[in-house]
Write a protein that binds this DNA or RNA. Structure first.
Lengths: 146, 146
DNA sequence: GTATCTGCAAAAGGTTTGCATTTTG
DNA sequence: CAAAATGCAAACCTTTTGCAGATAC
């Protein structure tokens, strides 16, 4: 995991390079995402940043997220219900383990996806751009009925 | 791949066992799903069955799909955009390769997911119930600009 | 005959869009 | 000062829900 403040600087630099503006709202959203080990949803980002910026709108969060995604600086985790969760610290594809009860999401880095990707490309002829591997289950905490 | 007519009989039998009714609408939806190698969406199922049953409603297709899912006789493939595609022939988790241009979906059976599942369970303590592995890319046809 | 299923229309829920206003560089 | 970003509200789209009427067993 990249240090949050380092990661934040990286993304700010990328924004500058492409002449996007560093607004206070963006900066606040960026901060949350740079340290996002909990894979927040847009709603969660909004809720957190709102405390600091009461005038912040959901639309702005959505637009910021879309921008970062387009820049390749944000990993979008599409949930099955149509909503998404985000990882702004490690924006490349990696496996996740998702609790279907409490919706907690953790990384599962023991498995590299590069080989799988290459293999799929060879066997199918597709040019593979992206992949998503999700394990769905019940986390230890929810198993114990906490 | 199970022969479509065999698969159809299997599912009908399961429905009978649980005292669900075999309506003409259900039967028509079931037929499409039993031979679904193209991983149809609800809309596509609806469009196809509508030709035979002009009075069919989307809601009925959704309800049938939900029932089969609950019975474990249908695999739901959650797309990132909130929509879903279905496999009624092989209802257990298996990897897919998805074209982001034409939305064509093919199976990628060279890779077994059972070991991955077990490994994730051991390493994380989660009880793994389900998993989804999707490769996203451009199919050969779309690469050639057809 | 009765519990279940169908089909319509309305509601839901996350996300996107249009546009007037504000702000950044 | 010009171009870009914000914030509001309306629009979108797939899926879900409630309910009256129809139907399988």
């Amino acid at each position: 995991m990249t240090e949050p403040q380092v990661r934040l600087e990286q993304v700010i630099e990328k924004l500058r390079q492409r002449a996007f503006r560093i607004t206070p709202q963006r900066l606040a959203v960026l901060k949350i995402l740079a340290e996002s080990k909990n894979h927040p949803s847009v709603d969660q980002i909004y809720a957190q940043v709102s405390q600091e910026f009461p005038t912040l709108s959901l639309a702005t969060v959505y637009k910021t997220v879309a921008l970062l995604k387009e820049m390749g600086e944000l990993l979008e985790l599409g949930m099955r219900d149509g909503s998404s969760r985000y990882d702004g610290n490690k924006p490349w594809p990696h496996p996740h383990v998702i609790c279907t009860e409490c919706r907690n999401i953790i990384d599962f880095d023991e498995l590299s996806l590069d080989n799988l990707s290459r293999e799929a490309a060879e066997k199918t002829g597709y040019r593979i751009i992206n992949l998503q591997l999700d394990f769905l289950g019940i986390c230890p905490r929810c198993q114990s009925g906490k």
